[in-house]
Design a protein around this nucleic acid. Structure first.
Lengths: 213, 213
DNA sequence: ACTTATTTTAAACAATTGTTTAAAAAGCAT
DNA sequence: ATGCTTTTTAAACAATTGTTTAAAATAAGT
């Protein structure tokens, strides 16, 4: 009678395992760490890990799904606001940079994690549906018909946002390595980049509002 | 007397190992594969792998370094051409997309690989120096002083290019997962994105040459 | 042909892996 | 306290890991 039957306990152990697993998986990846490492960082026995979650793989899938959900939810939050598309653009980029500064390992973890998994059916959380519910697609479609927004496929719009927000964060080591920068120098570049991306994307997606550089 | 003493042999075994290691490391990452897996894919014994290269780690570093060099070299090639900055921009993006379509695992491999390593001193190949030799920095500086190019730090310029070329490739699984796309649909988005990125970056970096959308 | 150096292999090494088993400890109702 | 369930542990499992050793096969030099 594993869990699932009665769940009255304090939940703290299960949650502590998840937290530790998240931290370890994030920084080292699935095959880059061991179950014992995770257990040790919680202060529990290895067997307890398989007691709560059935296997290392199952635990990983859980963490990965949660990570995906986290960052889709950040988009949903902004899209649900009552703002113009230009303001949503600015807001999304700012929120994304802010969020990713706190969780810089997240993008790389997600992409590497998805590549590790064999099946790509992460439709369980219905991310597309959650995005649709915000009405962002209709808002864009309307703006595009009115000539206020450049007619670009929404998938490409998504790519533009994600490319310019996620990549600068995940490429930290590469960029610092090439340009021989330290942490604070990179931070400075990142801050400037945040403004660059905002201006560039708004200029490109809403060309009528800005006619000058 | 390992290697290094006399190297007259045909080299094919050593190269075959490198090729196989590159392929396996690329798709599965350092800790995602085993030395036996690599050896098997070459058709040799495991010990031979440690005979040519001293350890799994050493072999990995070699592959990673070569991968980094490969993609810096692609940039160097374009920067060395006798073209205007606008043309170099277009050329670089096209070459980058073309190159990455052939090696889609490369960016993720590099970023994940750099995170796995403890020391980030990959200055051995002197990437920055190679970039400087092309004269691209002077060309940009001159254009910026003449008001033909937006005054943006070269590190940010690098980030803009890499973000918009690398990320669309490495995010394939994520984007396909969210938007429920198959291979060919994704390919279509990618082709369109290539044009989008070209126009967007040129509009942003060289605002004088294009005043309209 | 003989000697020497290089390349390749089979086998073993000790350490670590994810997972399971069986028993102990802790909680909880009665 | 007594039973029962849930939580936690220690120990063991078989499989796999990277690496090494010692011997065999091949090539090269004379």
């Amino acid at each position: 009678m594993q869990r699932d039957k009665k769940m009255k306990k304090d939940l703290s152990t299960e949650q502590k395992i998840k937290d530790a697993a998240r931290k370890v998986f994030m920084t080292k990846g699935f095959s880059g760490c061991t179950t014992r490492e995770i257990a040790k960082s919680v202060g529990i026995n290895v067997a307890l890990l398989n007691y709560y979650f059935r296997s290392k793989g199952k635990l990983f899938e859980l963490i990965l799904e949660a990570a995906l959900s986290d960052f889709i939810e950040a988009m949903v939050e902004v899209f649900s606001m009552d703002l113009s598309l230009e303001d949503k653009t600015r807001m999304l980029i700012d929120k994304e940079f802010e969020f990713l500064r706190k969780h810089p390992e997240l993008p790389l973890f997600i992409h590497a994690g998805l590549n590790q998994e064999s099946d790509n059916d992460f439709d369980q959380s219905n991310f597309l549906g959650r995005l649709h519910q915000t009405g962002i697609f209709e808002q864009c479609e309307k703006a595009q018909e009115e000539g206020k927004m450049r007619k670009v496929n929404m998938i490409n719009v998504t790519l533009l946002f994600m490319s310019n927000c996620h990549f600068p964060i995940m490429s930290k080591k590469l960029i610092c390595g090439i340009y021989q920068m330290n942490e604070s120098q990179h931070e400075e570049r990142l801050n400037e980049h945040q403004e660059i991306v905002k201006e560039m994307l708004i200029n490109y997606l809403f060309p009528n509002t800005f006619k000058n550089a």
